[in-house]
Amino acid sequence: MSSSAVRDLVVGLFVVAGLAAIGYLSVQVGGLNYKGEGGLVLVAHFDDIGGLTGRAPVSVAGVTVGQVKAIQLDDLLRAEVTLDLDPGLELPTDTSVAIRTAGILGDQFLALEPGAEEEFLRSGDEIAYTEDALSLERLIGKFVNNAGLE
């Protein structure tokens, strides 16, 4: 091999390694994915979502099956949360969803609890049964007020 061919090879290796590093950062670390629009998209309404944020994980029995795609305010001034779940997931129509916290100081996530109906939720459906975020401040407030009444 001539010296310029060796040099070309080294440049090629460098470029491939650089692109691989970009790919690693984007896909593995950055969580970029090309699932497309094929996922199961569900909507849920809450009175109070607490500190829930976009990209928060959604789990069934503790297993992550998707993430929060969008959070916005609906016409009735409630929080409308859009969930993007794995396409093959079969959730009964009476499934409920609750906002939970991982540990005491951890991030908030959505926990799905499957119901017992025979039919399954399809993309675009709404989860009717929702449970708001547990607000520690509100709980303490209630406790203090009740204690004061007695």
């Binding site: 460098f14 470029v15 390694a17 650089g18 692109l19 590093a21 970009i22 690693y24 950062l25 670390v29």
Partner: peptide
């Protein structure tokens, strides 16, 4: 051309 490539390699090695 090389700056983004070197950046990605730097971060990958640093991680």
């Amino acid at each position: 051309f090389v700056m983004p490539l070197l950046y990605a390699l730097f971060v990958a090695v640093a991680l």
